[in-house]
């Protein structure tokens, strides 16, 4: 199966990415080739196989709900491109 330009544009929006016309064409080819290669998977009958999310049988790991040292507000904001009044600053969301 190959990927259409529309597929690429649709997925790009989901991934919050933008591409030029030329890049869309190139991606349709390149991702199409990888997906064609991955088509081999469909030849394998897995209807009775359980999916493995993690290789080890580690179950949920719990700890006591205790207060521990954590980043200060200043440390947490230190890398922010923009901050104000102890908060991350973003462009206006509501009109």
């Amino acid at each position: 199966m190959s990927l259409t330009r529309e597929d690429v544009t649709y997925v790009a929006n989901l991934a919050r990415l933008e591409f030029s016309e030329d890049q869309v064409t190139a991606l349709a080819d390149q991702l199409g080739a990888v997906l064609d290669y991955a088509e081999t998977l469909s030849g394998l009958d897995t209807s009775k196989i359980k999916a493995t999310e993690h290789v080890l049988a580690v179950q949920n790991v719990f700890r006591k709900d205790e207060i521990k040292p954590c980043l200060t507000n200043e440390e947490a904001l230190a890398n922010a491109p923009e901050s104000e009044a102890g908060c991350f600053k973003v462009p206006r969301v509501m009109e």
């Binding site: 597929d7 991934a15 991702l31 469909s42 394998l44 999916a51 493995t52 999310e53």
Partner: peptide, 26 residues
């Protein structure tokens, strides 16, 4: 990111991502 988003997107999840996790078991 594009490949991964595609493999997780509605309609393709079973064919690619879930399938790959099953192959992992195998």
């Amino acid at each position: 990111i594009m490949l991964g988003t595609y493999a997780l997107s509605s309609g393709y999840y079973d064919a690619y991502y879930k399938k790959a996790m099953q192959v992992r078991t195998i």
